[in-house]
Amino acid sequence: MLECYDFGLALSLAPILSKVFYTNTPTLSLIVYYIIIMIGYFSRPIGAIVIGFFGDKYGRKKTYIANTFIMLIATIMLVFTPSSQSIGALAVFIFLLLRMIQGFSFGGEVGGGLTLCYEYGIPKYSLKFCAIFEALTSAGTILVTSIIAILVYSISPQSMIDYGWRIAFAFGAVLTFISYLLRFKLTETFHPKSQKHPPIYDLFLNYKKRLTLAILLSLVTVSITITGVFLPIILLKITSLTFKDVSYLHIYSSVALLISSLLVATFFPQRFFAKSWLIA
Rank of each mutant, 00 (worst) to 15 (best):
L205V: 13
V32P: 05
Y58P: 02
T23D: 14
I76D: 08
R60K: 10
G140W: 00
M100K: 01
L96K: 11
S154Q: 09
G172H: 03
R271G: 04
L262S: 03
Y33W: 05
A274D: 14
Y207N: 08
P157K: 03
L127S: 11
G113T: 02
Y248F: 15
L116A: 10
I161C: 00
L249M: 13
S218M: 11
T75W: 11
Q102C: 07
L257W: 09
L205S: 14
L151Q: 08
L9C: 15
I215S: 07
G121T: 10
F42G: 11
L28A: 15
L182Y: 13
L9K: 11
S223C: 03
T137I: 11
R99T: 06
K196S: 14
T63Q: 04
S156A: 02
S12H: 06
A265G: 02
P45H: 06
K209C: 06
A10I: 14
L136K: 08
V255Y: 00
I122V: 13
G59D: 04
I226M: 12
N206M: 05
K61N: 00
V255G: 00
F184V: 03
L127Q: 09
P199G: 10
S43C: 15
S247Q: 03
L2V: 14
F93K: 13
Y58W: 11
L98D: 01
P15I: 01
F267K: 01
A265P: 01
I148G: 06
Y125Q: 10
R44S: 06
S126W: 05
D6N: 13
F54M: 04
I87P: 14
G113S: 09
L13N: 02
Y22D: 12
Y64A: 10
I279F: 11
I122D: 15
S247L: 03
S260P: 04
I142Y: 01
A74G: 02
K185M: 02
Q102N: 07
I167Y: 08
T145S: 15
K196T: 15
A214C: 15
P123L: 00
A265S: 01
A48L: 08
V174L: 14
K193D: 06
T176W: 09
F171D: 03
H250P: 10
S247H: 01
D162Y: 10
S223H: 02
A149W: 06
G103R: 04
I36H: 04
L262I: 03
T187F: 11
A48N: 05
Y125G: 08
F169T: 01
T239Q: 00
G40S: 05
I87D: 13
H250Y: 13
I49E: 07
F273M: 09
S154N: 12
V222K: 07
K193R: 12
S84C: 07
T81Q: 12
S146Y: 04
L11E: 10
I37K: 07
I70T: 10
I49R: 13
M38T: 15
Y180H: 12
Y22T: 15
